[in-house]
Design a protein around this nucleic acid. Sequence first.
RNA 1: GCCUGUGUAGCUCAGCUGGUAGAGCAGCUCAUUCGUAAUGAGCAGGUCGUGGGUUCGAGUCCCACCGCAGGCUCCA
Length: 660
Amino acid sequence: MSTISVTLPDGSQREVPDGSSALDVAAAIGSRLAKAAVAAVVNGELVDLGRPVPDNSTVSVVTTTSPEGREVLRHSTAHVLAQAVTRLWPGAHFAIGPAITDGFYYDFDLPGGAHFSDSDMVRIEEEMRRIVAEDQPFVRSEHSIEEGLALFSSQPYKTEIIAAVQSGGTAEDLAEVGNSAVVSAYRNTDDFVDLCRGPHVPSTGRLGYFKLMRVAGAYWRGDEKRQQLQRIYGTAWESQEALDGHLYRLDEAEKRDHRKLGLEMDLFSFPTEIGPGLSVFHPKGGALRRLIEDYSRQRHVEDDYEFVTSPHITKAELFETSGHLQWYAEGMYPPMILDEGQRYYLKPMNCPFHVLIYKSRQRSYRELPLRLFEFGTVYRYEKSGVVHGLTRVRGFTQDDAHILCTKDQMRDELARLLTFILSLLRDFGLNDFYLELSTRPPEKAVGTLEDWAEAEATLADVARAEGLDLVLDEGGGAFYGPKISVQAKDAIGRTHQMSTIQLDFQTPQRFEATYVGPDNARHQPIMIHRALFGSVERFIAILVEHYAGNLPTWLSPEQVRVLSVRNDHDDYAFEIAKLLKSRGIRVTVDAATEPLGARIRKAKLEKLPYIVVVGDDDVAARTVGINARGSNDPERGVSFETFLERLTAEVASHGRPEDL
RNA sequence: GCCUGUGUAGCUCAGCUGGUAGAGCAGCUCAUUCGUAAUGAGCAGGUCGUGGGUUCGAGUCCCACCGCAGGCUCCA
């Protein structure tokens, strides 16, 4: 028997019999590898294990613990889901079923307009386990377009994809099929075959560590004007431990949910009497908010911003001039009709007001850059299905500023701004950033291509200069200019869009804002929109989740609670509370009305940074007992002065919290 | 806006196939005075999201609406 030679990832060569499959190669390397293998990369292409390997090819075996391997088994699990559904609902049409982060989904259209219910998830999962137990093979076949259309003649969504691929096809379609010349399909049984690019695990028996998570609606091809399908989401892993780990992480994330913690910590609420997406901040949330805003104000003062304010409503004319009514009217609250037909709108943005402040008198180049800052509360009519806690609301406050500068100043101004933003975010305990550049949206955009190109290039240069990773978001810009956004990773690795810097060549032009240059002629300034927190409300949500409610001491609404052991220690407790308060510490006293253990427990549950206990010894020696958050080991007999120094130093340095 | 769920006391939840609401915690009162995560007793608290309907009778069944949750679409 003749042999062929393959190159392995470590560079070594191996001789295998001609006609060997990727699985044979894996087996030749080792039986454990063969057991863990789910697919292979042959000459750079991810393929089935059963695929014969050509001579002189490079072969890399993909195992279940690699990202590619997990993707293969998730995708294969999606096929098992589809088969289970077709067994239970004969005649069901299925659309697409890709692997996604941590799992997979599959979209279905059930016969007779039937819908899945939550209890169906149990039945489907049972059916899936039967299919796994049957250990059905995944058998690949390749067909011409015509054959493909015939093979899937009872599956209209599949034939639509094949037909779309025939006439070019989108990236999404090609992901299903592979390439435009060949229609590939994977058959599990005589009754079940699915259109798919592959690769797949050799057989369903390789799967099993999955769980169906939920059912949701999804529009066919993501188009809200088309058929709404039933989407089932699932998660799938290579082992029970990995699956359990994922479920545990979900559980932990749920414990951090700012909506839950916000209620428990008495920070804010959404009274239904006020309306969806409209929040009120309670005293503790109000304190947190004031601390955040005050610190931000201080930093802005230091960075040469000037403070302005503007009203919440305005005549339509302002947003006609800015272009918002033309582009985003559906995102605005409907107008109030006043004074013989005059239309007034709640403001969805602050920028036109700031431009009017700029325009209130003639400006000289000597005044630029002019940095106008406002905590501006805006209102946007979000669709009813999208409001979510504090992160997506209908009324919120932006830490909004608009910088007007000359074209020559733009580059320096952007660089300075990015440094400022990162420094401020780091002060709040966020440390892991990358940048995203959103470029010209093809449909909704004003301005010349040249202006866009120049602005995008400048933003990219400045981002690179900061040394952070830059990700491109093609077509994601606003209608009036490109933007760069700072993305921050939180304590459990989730990414949040934080700050945005938006260049705008259009608004100054629309408002005919000018400055007089050294040449004594009028010129148009550049406008930079920027918000660091984005919205104060959303920033609070992110901080609460980042810290799991354990806000750092400098941001805690109540920093210290003093507990007296007995009533006769109350006077001392109040005395040191007064001293702490005089040093700017937010402190309360919980006098001895219930047992000490109960008061400790209550304060612990409220996530207080410091619980101070004072008893006989402390009154005698002017000391305190300190029970710090995150510690199960209280310190006794610390002198009050030592504690005060430690506390004020921690607050001043924005010291990090004990447990994230 | 669309799909699927869901809504009982401030919070967490129980309430079987329809027979006129129940617990724990929190709150209040009284007693207890205690050295680091729950002292005891008592009291009070709900038109069961809202409005219709079926029924002798609805927290429970049906319809509509509202809120919330998870998705989809959207997010200047």
